[in-house]
Computed example of a mutant assay.
Amino acid sequence: MTVTSEIADCRICAERFAATATAHRPQPVVWFRPGARVLIASQAPGMRAHVSGKPFDDPSGVRLREWMQVDDATFWDRDKVAIVPMGFCFPGYDAAGGDIPPPKVCAATWRERALAHAGDVPVTLLIGGYAQNWHLGRGRVTDRVLNWRALAPRVFCLPHPSWRNTAWLKKHPFFEAETLPALRAAIREALA
């Protein structure tokens, strides 16, 4: 049994998810295999990805593909892009309708094996605080995104592409003016 099939069968969070406001069952979204050229380390699938079984199958994904300058076919081609989130399942919503963080048990159980299975990837996107903290240790997303040159062109720290970060993007124009062109160049080279 491969690590991808083991993750797909995982039900370790069944009781945890049943206790959320969404009261859903685990449904891991496993979207990686060896040989991919770009690794997206993200937080966890959203509700739409939970339903469709495709990561970033939502407006955040549209924005992320725009940032990367890749089309849908390239983005969802597992030979080109590996998506390894901190939690493979949609964690659910709290009583107020907010996103619940990915359960730490998921990364503790699967992350190292998943990354080893994905192998050495030329370009890695660390999206949001959960992924950045796991890969780089504790720190602030804004500081890491501001200092993108320190890890580029192999690693890029990005804010989450959610609409909730639109104000952040407007407040930090360097991201669009400087970071995205470098990110796109690195991705083009990795996919060539």
Rank of each mutant, 00 (worst) to 15 (best):
P55Y: 04
V105Q: 14
R154N: 08
G128W: 02
T109M: 14
G119A: 14
V29Q: 09
S60C: 08
M68T: 00
A114P: 02
R16G: 03
R144M: 03
D99W: 07
V155R: 11
A185T: 11
Q43I: 04
R11M: 07
P153M: 04
D71C: 01
D79Y: 07
R111W: 11
V3N: 03
V145D: 00
S42T: 15
W134Y: 13
D120L: 07
P91N: 10
W163L: 11
L64H: 02
T124A: 14
P161N: 07
L125S: 05
P28A: 06
A108G: 14
Q69D: 12
V38R: 08
R65V: 01
D9E: 15
R25M: 12
L115Y: 13
E178C: 02
C10T: 04
M68V: 02
V62R: 00
L39T: 05
G46N: 15
A177M: 05
K104A: 14
P34Q: 02
Q43G: 13
N147S: 12
T22H: 10
I187M: 10
A192Q: 13
D99R: 06
D120C: 06
L183S: 03
N147V: 00
I187G: 01
P91L: 11
M86R: 09
A116F: 08
R11W: 06
V62G: 00
C10Q: 06
P181T: 00
D9P: 02
P122Y: 13
Q43C: 09
I7G: 05
P91M: 14
R113P: 01
C10A: 13
S42N: 07
T179C: 12
P159E: 12
A49P: 01
S52G: 08
D9Q: 15
I100K: 14
L136P: 07
H24W: 05
A116W: 08
K171D: 00
M47Q: 10
P55I: 04
R16E: 13
W76V: 04
P28I: 11
P159H: 07
A192E: 15
V29M: 05
F156V: 06
A182C: 05
Q69I: 01
W168Y: 14
L158C: 11
F174E: 03
T142L: 09
T124V: 02
H117D: 15
T109Y: 09
P159M: 08
R11V: 10
R33D: 02
A131D: 10
F88H: 14
P45G: 05
R149L: 13
G92F: 11
H117K: 07
K54V: 07
R164M: 01
V38D: 01
V141G: 00
R48C: 03
R65K: 13
I7C: 04
R144F: 03
I100N: 14
P102A: 15
R25N: 12
T4I: 10
L39N: 08
Y130C: 12
A177R: 15
P102F: 13
P102T: 12
H50E: 09
V38A: 04
D99M: 15
C106E: 14
